[in-house]
Every structure is written in structure tokens, then in C-alpha cells.
Design a protein around this nucleic acid. Structure first.
Lengths: 229, 229
DNA sequence: GACGCTATTATGTCTGCACATAATAAGCCC
DNA sequence: GGGCTTATTATGTGCAGACATAATAGCGTC
């Protein structure tokens, strides 16, 4: 069954673009025109076009109109789940061990990323996440104690990430992915050879007021991050 | 300056959630109620709430109402750009070399991924992408010739990905990221040691009717994929 | 032609109303 | 209480009309 309403318009416009009826770079008819053609209100066309613009298929500018994107940069939506849920989603039992928890002067890359003065002392947490007792990911986290006003969580019970996500209100952040060879301590913790290729996630988060945490996750070999395109 | 209109409502609701005025798991007031409180039409509140639902902050269900997400799975929007643009965006000159281009029986993982019968013969393209003459990424692509009806592109001129993106209408696809140790041929092409940790992108695309291509990209060491969170 | 101002125009958003839809809650029968 | 049907309700979507906004296009001046 075909979709109805604004989705049908989105699909029809999308189909015309894919069929090159409207070629990349072309300006396509205005909302008013399309609304008449499809026999709907302009708001309905707008809804459909907004959706297509969000996926990068078209580019819209006031007055200039709507044009088919020249090189549609595909957009993929990544779901960054809490590790526990990720592990449990695989049908495995989740557990974690805190390997280290102490105050330490953060190294330059970390303070730079968080926008703190050089030499700032942060709480460093090293954690091993396990799935059915097997190493799943090694976490190296720097936590700004100033961001945890009055709260004293026990990270041996609840993982730092999970606690932060549901207790510290935060606004922004960024995330980066890369591949790294396992350093000695990481290799030992994950039980892999030194230099083994590991999938690494780097994340930093801030509130409006101050930096909260910078965390690096070394995923065990074989880890894949998936998404629909 | 504060945003106005639906964005101000989105921000206000978001702020109340972060301030735990509405705690995770709570059901928040209905659209009609909020519309009255903010002095706007329900459609405006709906717009704001739809946006928050899309970012995973709230979960909405008809009749059940709107509730604050318990464990907000962060969503990151990845922009998958064409390699040429990625390289040029770094201020480097892009070029590429086709290392191999021939028909070959696709191995089991590839046919499985594309949903083709075992032993199907596909066009295999191995390409090296360069930035300022330095290896940037090694591409191993399997292309379904049936998907290129009548068209005969010259992939030594335009990269396969770029040509496909702007010439083959396609509907769906999926993408996965992982870390792999460099195999011998990849290591040679990229000029790195065997076993070096490489960031790998696997992508498969289909039209409604048939599979188009399956491609694996080995990025040169140091590659980072970034996104706002 | 180079400039700066103004008119025009397509998209962006809002309102107020209506009906559709999905899912819970309530009622009913046994 | 268990299992079914029906009513209720919050969200989802639609429409018509209006004004806001951004950016181009056109005009006039020099």
C-alpha cells in the first residue's frame, strides 16, 4: 500500500528526482505550484520538502527556491546507546569493573578538547566493560568534578556514562570515531595483542556553563557500528 | 537573543527536562495544555515536540501521551560526503587511481550482503584515493553490472562512488564502521605496515529492484570521522 | 559599468479549526 | 477474574489563510 498525505508527496518528489525528471542542480517548482498539482495545501508540500531537505536530497533557500542537490551527501543517523543496553541487546549479560579511579592532572589533548587550562586536575576513571564476562570495551574517562555538584555516585554500581546521561543535564557535545592500534595497557585489559586494530570512540560533553567529561572507548576487536543510510 | 516561535518552545521544554522539572519516565503535559500555557496554537507545540522526539529526548505515543526518555540514546547525524569533497575540504588536491577493474565471482560475504545468489559475477573495482598525492583511502568495490543499464562510465575520470551517487537512482542502503588490521595488499597500496589499524567503512546500496554495489573503504591511518552530538 | 536602494518572491512559520488514528481505559458478558 | 467490544483521548495530519524573513532581481543614480 502506498503512503498517503505528506509522505506520498515526499516519495513522489523523491521519485522524480531519482528518475532525473528533475536533474541535480535544477530548480524544482515552488510549493504553491506543487500544492496545486497534488491538490493539497501548501503546508503539506512544505512538510514533505522539509523532510527531503533534512535528508540532503534537496537544498532550499528563501527566494532562490528549491533545487536538487548536486552531490547529495548521504546522511546516516547513528544511535549512540548506553553500553549496557548495547550488550544486553546482543543477548549477553553486562558487567563492568572499575580498574582505576583517582584524581590526576589531565594531559594536553584532554584539557584542549574540554577547553580547560593546562594542568587541570580531573577525576580519571578507567573501566572495563564486559559482555558475558568477555571484554567488550575499555573506557578511559576524564571527569570534571566541578560538574558533579554535591553528587557522589558509586561508579562501581552504575557505569559513569549511564549515570551521567540520566543525572547531569547537558546541552552539547561532539563525537569522533577512529581506528587505533592497542597500546600496552589497553591490550592487556582487553586481552588482545599489542597493536591490534581497535575501533575507538572519542566523546566530549559540556553543559552551557562548563565541560563535563571526555571519554575514549576502545572497543574489542570485531566491533561494528551500524546504521541505515 | 533568544529564539522565537516553535524553537523557543522546544528549548523551554528541553530546559525543563534538563532541570528535572520533568524527570525521566514522567509523562509531560499534553499539547493542548502546553499550547495554552505558552499562548500558541497546538500545531506550534506539536512542531517543537516532534523535533524533540526526533532527537530522542522524549518519546511520544498516541493516547499514551509524551514522556521523557529514560535513557536518552544520543543520536549523531553523520554526513557521508563523497571522498573528493572530503579531501578538497581539507584543502588538498584530490586524485585517484584505478588499480583493478575486471569481472570476478563475488565472495560469499559480498553476495550475502547484497542478497545475490552465490557465485554471481560482479565488476570488481579497486581504487586508491589520494590527497595531494598521498594515499587517503583504498577502495574495494563490487558493482552489479545489471544496475548500470546501457551506461558505460569511465571510472578513471570520475570515481565510481561519485558517478553512482549522481547517476543511479537508489532508495536504500546501509553502512557500517569498524577497525581492521591492514591486509598485505591494502598495506602496500596505502604505504603502511601490514596489520596497521585502519578505519573501515562498509557500505551497500540497493534500488527497489536490485542491488547496486557493495564497497569497503580502508582509510589511511589517522583518519577520524567526526560529528556533533 | 559600479553602487545602493527598493520591490518582489519563495520559503518559513503561525493560527484556528477539523478529522484521522492508535492505544488505552471502561464497560460488558460470561 | 478472563476475554471481548466500545468509548475516550493524545497525538498525527490536514486545510486555508496570514504574516515574517531572507535573498534575489530590478531600478535609478552617479
Amino acid at each position: 500500500m502506498q503512503p498517503q498525505g505528506w509522505e506520498s508527496i515526499r516519495d513522489e518528489v523523491s521519485a522524480r528526482i531519482r528518475a532525473r525528471l528533475w536533474a541535480p542542480g535544477d530548480t524544482i517548482p515552488g510549493e504553491e505550484t506543487l500544492a496545486q498539482e497534488f491538490g493539497v495545501a501548501r503546508a503539506t508540500v512544505n512538510r514533505a520538502m522539509r523532510e527531503l531537505a533534512a535528508t540532503g536530497v534537496i537544498e532550499r533557500r528563501r527566494k532562490a527556491g528549491t533545487r536538487v542537490a548536486l552531490l547529495p551527501a548521504r546522511r546516516a543517523l547513528l544511535e549512540i546507546a548506553v553500553i549496557r543496553l548495547e550488550v544486553e541487546g546482543k543477548g549477553a549479560a553486562y558487567s563492568h569493573q572499575v580498574l582505576e579511579d583517582r584524581m590526576e592532572a589531565a594531559p594536553p589533548p584532554v584539557v584542549a578538547r574540554l577547553g580547560l587550562p593546562a594542568g587541570t586536575v580531573l577525576r580519571r576513571l578507567r573501566t572495563l566493560h564486559l559482555a558475558d564476562g568477555q571484554p567488550w570495551a575499555y573506557e578511559d574517562r576524564w571527569l570534571n568534578p566541578a560538574a558533579l555538584v554535591g553528587e557522589a555516585p558509586d561508579f562501581t554500581q552504575v557505569s559513569a556514562n549511564e549515570w551521567l546521561v540520566s543525572h547531569v543535564p547537558y546541552a552539547t557535545g561532539d563525537i569522533a570515531f577512529s581506528a587505533e592500534g592497542a597500546e600496552p595497557d589497553v591490550a592487556v585489559a582487553l586481552g588482545v595483542e599489542e597493536g591490534a586494530a581497535l575501533f575507538v570512540t572519542d566523546r566530549a560533553t559540556w553543559t552551557e556553563a562548563q565541560p563535563i567529561t571526555s571519554v575514549r572507548l576502545y572497543h574489542a576487536p570485531g566491533y561494528r557500528m551500524r546504521s541505515a543510510l
